[in-house]
Design a protein around this nucleic acid. Structure first.
Lengths: 234, 234
DNA sequence: ATTCTTGTTTGCGCTGCGGCAAGTTTCGCG
DNA sequence: CGCGAAACTTGCCGCAGCGCAAACAAGAAT
């Protein structure tokens, strides 16, 4: 498997600045695994035995509250780390991670983290950079939740997904994995009903095209106007 | 100033696991400064020249949105780091930090971060631990915003403040710095009007006592019931 | 003491959006 | 190919909480 993975991995930002031999040394310690659609990669509260690098697919990270609510924290795309609890001084995973489609990932035992971090400073620096940007994201999310209306939040969420995983088609830009109204609701703190109403309205206006577990953004620019609250109410 | 600072600093969790000589080495590189009430420690978008350790006082960290909203991200208490943008791969501060009262802090030039982190691994590990717990906090915040009603969020915010900075008095537990209805509103994503109404109602029920820029929690337990949504609506 | 500023209280009307409920479409599976 | 489950749509109602506006207190300043 060595050479196959090498070609996949070489360009990832997590490994930026690493010599080829170091990279081999690091990747050599990982095992690769595949996760079937809808199967968990790791689960909330569970002992954090490993951390992961997603190579292919999409993973949904969800937090469950005691009272039965589910909040989607983020979607992981190929090339991103996940389950890095240990780097943050935790011993358990803070959330559930569920494969949105069939996935391939690398996994390192968590106990390797200290030595990896010590021996490969640019690897740890890169890791903390992604932690930093996730902290940023979380704060942005808090701000959106505090100051924006539902339609703005949903528009923002769609644009974020499009930027992250958008795939050009004839009709527009398609979000490249199955996503339901419910999923979008859990990302934006609303209900599937409201999301459905919004998408219907936007479809009428030609902004998006959507179907069962599928959303295509036709006019990102006009959607951005809505996201920023600068749109004439119909 | 050496010995004075030593005694203040020795027990802080940021420096846990550090030898006394290492601690001196680190603290020796810092300058100490005082910030008057309502003065900024650092400002959003500004070049992150330094990172700070708050020794005394309380600092409010606020994000401003383009459209003029203000969202309070967190309050910093003595012993906590702030402005550690550099450790997260940023070169500018992500928010405004404003002294809620007269403050004392240590400041290190940001460019020292890489060497400090490399030479004192337990210092950097501790730092990342606090980053980790802030990421946690932010996610908790998102979840609260997504799933809870305003009264629950305000109750949670008060309890958090009480736990962080509470000071026993005869009447109950006082939040130990001036905090306005507006401030609480900015922490919970609501308006000062709603906060005022809630506090008035709670005061009638004997849960809290509040005045101008001052809140005392009289019955934390009953407040917790509200926070968890397990309270009979009056 | 008087005035000014800043924070707080409270009433009232309105609305965004959640809850409920009933119906429709799409897909997977036997 | 037809049945059932899962996803989606839509109408209607209700209300939490926001916006507006006006009055009121408590310090600060002079």
């Amino acid at each position: 498997m060595g050479s196959l993975d090498r070609s996949l991995i070489a360009g990832l930002s997590v490994f930026e600045g690493l010599a080829a031999t170091d990279l081999d040394r690091i990747v050599g310690q990982a095992r690769s695994l595949r996760i079937a659609k809808d199967q968990p990669v790791f689960e909330q509260e569970q002992e954090a035995h490993s951390f992961f690098l997603l190579l292919d697919g999409h993973v949904r990270v969800v937090k469950s509250t005691p009272d039965g609510h589910e909040v989607t924290v983020r979607y992981i795309s190929p090339g991103e780390l996940m389950g890095i609890a240990h780097a943050l001084g935790r011993t358990t995973y803070p959330a559930n991670a569920i494969a949105a489609v069939d996935c391939v990932a690398l996994a390192w035992p968590s106990h390797l983290w200290p030595t990896l971090a010590a021996n490969f400073p640019s690897f740890s620096a890169n890791t903390y950079k992604t932690v930093g940007s996730r902290l940023q994201d979380a704060h942005t999310r808090v701000i959106e939740m505090s100051t924006e209306q539902v339609d703005q939040r949903v528009a923002h969420a769609l644009l974020k997904l499009v930027k992250q995983t958008g795939k050009k088609t004839e009709e527009g830009i398609l979000i490249d994995f199955p996503i339901s109204r419910q999923d979008i609701a859990e990302m934006t703190g609303t209900t599937l009903h409201t999301v459905s109403r919004l998408l219907s309205a936007w479809e009428d206006q030609g902004l998006v095209k959507s179907g069962r577990q599928k959303v295509t953004v036709v006019e990102p620019h006009r959607l951005l106007l809505i996201a920023e609250g600068r749109a004439e109410k119909s």
